[in-house]
Nucleic acid binder design. Structure first.
Lengths: 192, 192
DNA sequence: GTTGAACCGGAGGGGTACCTCCGCTACAGT
DNA sequence: ACTGTAGCGGAGGTACCCCTCCGGTTCAAC
């Protein structure tokens, strides 16, 4: 058993089928879906996803009976990877740790065009994703608060929305994105 | 001629048809489209928009030959109203003026779910909208910069993206939205 | 190598969206 | 009031998407 588990980890692992060909198709579908969702939002065509994955539409439906279940799996997969990465930053300076993790949060969320919906989804899996994110990033932020590096009149949830909102926006170039993100984080740092 | 004109103003006025019944339909379509775009993003069904407006699909297509032209008109309409409102705030304290206008920006942009696309659209009208927004809000921001109330290592465009990103995000309640927006604006205020 | 269970692809029925086209309606100018 | 014209609605062809179902295929356990 690993040092730290997140609510989402087991769920993700349990989904993948055992048989070799089935597992290959499952992976191809997740990859194709991640691309399609990133490109067209959560309304992407399921038949297109199956085509991208080089798989029949029937195979898609066998693995993911509903559009929502497919989206949940893609999202859970990304959240899982993101949570596992939080452990790496535990040793850094408190403020550095928060910004480093948020940087990764901003990058990993390929599905960001649809994250807003997910952040308030009601299903069990979205709930587990939220819990996992809080379990992974929350301690980093609270440590920064205790160290006097982050303002204390806000919650970790506020910070996630702030970063999610900014990174979901289209910028003229990456430099502008980083500039704007840094400005917003200055607001978090300031304290008051 | 009004005291101040924005590039978008004439374009908006020129679109509306002259005949009475046609003008009524035009208005109904704009209203219905504003709602539908706010609800489903810029991919909203055109037939649904016509239904909401109580108008035949043919009438929609006569007024707006393409989906893009309809979206442009809705967007231009909102930008126009927003720009005209900037004049009201010219008398306030420099920082107050900026935040008051941004508050309205955040509220008016009912089409916000799709604003990101519009902020980098290539068409003539999107260009005019951008120019209008800069002409309306830019001076407020630069005045705040000269007064030492806003940091000078950023541009007005950065500020717009920042606010647009945050307000396009779903929050659990309005209080959280205001809290997050205030935090981000603290970053703008801080100076450095 | 055999075998049966699990898995596969994609045809096809039903639905919805896009857009065009044309017979009908209602406005506005005389 | 008359009338020509600008404007109207919606039927219908085409295309795509959703989802089910089933005959054929591939895996893995023996």
């Amino acid at each position: 058993m690993p040092a730290q588990q997140f609510p989402i980890s087991e769920i993700v692992a349990a989904q993948r089928p055992a048989r070799k060909d089935a597992a290959r198709n499952y992976d191809a579908l997740l990859t194709a879906a991640r691309e399609a969702f990133a490109e067209h939002g959560s309304e992407a065509s399921l038949e297109d996803i199956a085509r991208r994955a080089g798989v029949g539409i029937g195979t898609l439906y066998r693995n993911f009976p509903t559009r929502r279940s497919l989206f949940e799996s893609v999202y859970a997969d990304e959240v899982n990877a993101l949570c596992r990465s939080a452990v790496e930053f535990a040793g850094l300076d408190p403020w550095e740790a928060v910004t480093a993790w948020l940087e990764r949060f901003a990058g990993y969320m390929v599905t960001k065009r649809a994250v807003r919906e997910a952040l308030e989804g009601e299903s069990e899996i979205f709930q587990a994703c939220r819990d996992s994110l809080y379990a992974a990033g929350g301690p980093l932020f609270e440590r920064a608060q205790r160290a006097g590096a982050a303002r204390t009149d806000m919650e970790f949830g506020d910070l996630l929305r702030l970063v999610a909102g900014i990174t979901a926006t289209a910028f003229t170039d990456d430099a502008q994105r980083d500039r704007v993100l840094a400005i917003a984080l200055d607001g978090v740092r300031a304290g008051r």
